[in-house]
Design a protein around this nucleic acid. Structure first.
Lengths: 205, 205
DNA sequence: GTCTATAGGAAGATAGAC
DNA sequence: GTCTATCTTCCTATAGAC
């Protein structure tokens, strides 16, 4: 194999690990299968990472950061607040249905982290970042569209992070057998009802 | 060790497996550790179960049925619909905070089942049962307290199953650092607002 | 930096005595 | 039914040549 700087090899191994874990599940993914997926030998793996745990730590960080990006891109201002919220939920949901393996992997890694002593902080960082991201998106909308909320922003943010997580897991288990659109409509109504308008709701920033 | 009928030994091993998995996590629980927890030798394990997977199948079934029981016991009619709903959420939440390991194990087993070919049906059964249980509880309340809903029962049931699941996972990761009571209040308001009264809301069956 | 080869251990499952 | 002992396989990690 061609020689390559360590940093690049590390990135290559992280991406290979994500592919292998998405395909086979975290518990069935071995250092050998990751090295094979990356097209390198086993000792190259251990040249770049001290241990399997060190690699997984990098994988969790990468997956978490990517998840935050996905959530942020789901919000695109529309004509009304309701449409903005509904479209945001839909964009997130489209990502889930289009990339079930990626979301499945996220859950697996959360539990992996919770179960390894010294790794709990990675799981906490992941969920805290999601809560913070929702909080930022709410504040952003609140300022651009001009409204107040009947509940504190952190409470709503925590609820949204947890609730979407639960819907996602439920979809991963039960699949597309249900009128998910009805559920997204219902939570849109709920969230929309939590705002008390201060200016014209149709006005954009 | 004392001789024992197979059925009893099987039950003993299932309970030992649940204790070991709750303590160590599913992936770190071995046939040896289960046998040790049950106080029997490794070959007794394989005398009672063809394989580790066969035992885990029994464990998943047991855990799922227990979870349904917990959910059903959370609902106890109160003076008003709102109080009934709020107390139901609280009872479920008290169970989560008092038995985090049990709920954690439930999530782990769901993923274990999703990842083993031929075991997906156990994960689906688990989540389908939860949805059905919520559906039954809703119908029961609807008849005893006399009201109609603005959304179809299966939609609300699916939402409640998924949402509580998400809140639980969020708690398991982030712990008790938040005003969870505010979130339970908020979802109580939401659900209460979904009913359109047909008779006196304070009347009990 | 990358390779081949192997150390060292732990896992699931089985054999055969009692 | 239960035991001890063992088979077989697969894993992480390392050693040492190139």
């Amino acid at each position: 194999m061609a020689r390559m700087p360590s940093a690049e090899r590390r990135q290559q191994l992280i991406e290979a690990a994500i592919r292998a874990m998405t395909r086979d599940g975290v518990s069935r993914t071995t250092t050998r299968s990751i090295a094979a997926e990356a097209g390198v030998s086993l000792s190259v793996f251990h040249y770049c990472f001290d241990s399997k745990q060190a690699l997984i730590e990098s994988v969790i960080t990468a997956i978490t950061d990517h998840g935050v990006t996905v959530a942020k891109e789901a919000i695109r201002p529309k004509a009304t607040l309701r449409e903005t919220i509904r479209a945001g939920f839909q964009a997130y949901w489209d990502h889930v249905t289009a990339n079930p393996g990626e979301h499945m992997l996220t859950y697996e890694l959360t539990q992996y982290a919770l179960r390894r002593p010294g790794f709990e902080h990675l799981a906490r960082r992941q969920h805290a970042l999601y809560c913070d991201t929702y909080g930022e998106l709410i504040e952003q909308l609140r300022h651009s569209m001009g409204f107040e909320l009947r509940v504190p922003v952190p409470v709503l943010a925590r609820y949204l992070a947890a609730m979407t997580d639960g819907l996602t897991l439920n979809f991963l288990v039960l699949g597309n057998d249900t009128a998910w659109a009805d559920i997204l409509d219902m939570i849109t109504d709920h969230v929309t009802g939590l705002v008390c308008d201060q200016v014209q709701p149709a006005a954009m920033d």
